[in-house]
Design a protein around this nucleic acid. Structure first.
Lengths: 115, 115
DNA sequence: TGAACACATGAACATTTGTTCAAATAAAGA
DNA sequence: TCTTTATTTGAACAAATGTTCATGTGTTCA
């Protein structure tokens, strides 16, 4: 065994339940696809209908629709119907902040790689 | 076509290149697995050796090792060798902040679900 | 030296995922 | 009404992923 010490016990007790971890992971997973990430980036500039997303990102409409369902499921995007259009937007500011933080993380990594 | 308007053009021009999007997505993807997320959560409490992570999270050593490689690859964790132990830790503060933000996002979603 | 420990690695496998296609729904206009 | 437009849905399939097992590497200690 490694060390079966206090440290291990403390960690063991404070890690959230499996279910909660899975929920958190699911949000990251939703952002963990280049296509979906581009959709989120697009929506961070303002609301867009499904077809405009597809046009701007040069993706197939049905793919955009599938991806939007995933993002919707994780509460990342919301939508409202306007006539025959579905207008999507980011559901809260957390997502924008997440994008910024990851950019920062990437920059950190690049800086360290240079040194 | 949807609307082929200014809005679409603006989005089209400002979305980062595919490669950059893929890099960002890869970081989210690394966090998008319950097992890896638990490892990251554990390391957010302090540095740990590989075996202690496995013990604390009740995971197989080889699985922990595989997952750590993924996290290492994305610059999420770093390590230093100490004798026969490999001591892992989070490589920067961004990751902790990411975890906090996702918690906040989840809380937002729960609040809205109640209303 | 050799046994025991800590960890990494590679192959193999089932499962999950992203993507495409064809078809379905739903609203708008002729 | 019928047609067109906007979007969603489901089936299908290739590709990617998580996990396990067996093996390999490097370190410590007797």
């Amino acid at each position: 065994m490694a060390s079966s010490n206090k440290k291990v016990e403390r960690v063991m007790k404070s890690i959230p339940e499996m279910e909660k971890c899975a929920m958190i992971a699911d949000i990251f997973k939703a952002l963990g696809d280049p296509g979906r990430l581009r959709i989120v980036k697009a929506l961070s500039m303002g609301k867009l209908c499904s077809g405009d997303i597809a046009a701007a990102l040069n993706m197939e409409n049905s793919l955009v629709s599938h991806q939007l369902q995933v993002l919707k499921h994780q509460g990342i995007v919301t939508f409202k119907k306007e006539g025959k259009f579905m207008i999507y937007s980011l559901s809260n500011e957390c997502v924008k902040k997440l994008l910024k933080l990851v950019d920062k993380h990437l920059n950190n990594c690049e800086q360290e790689a240079k040194q």
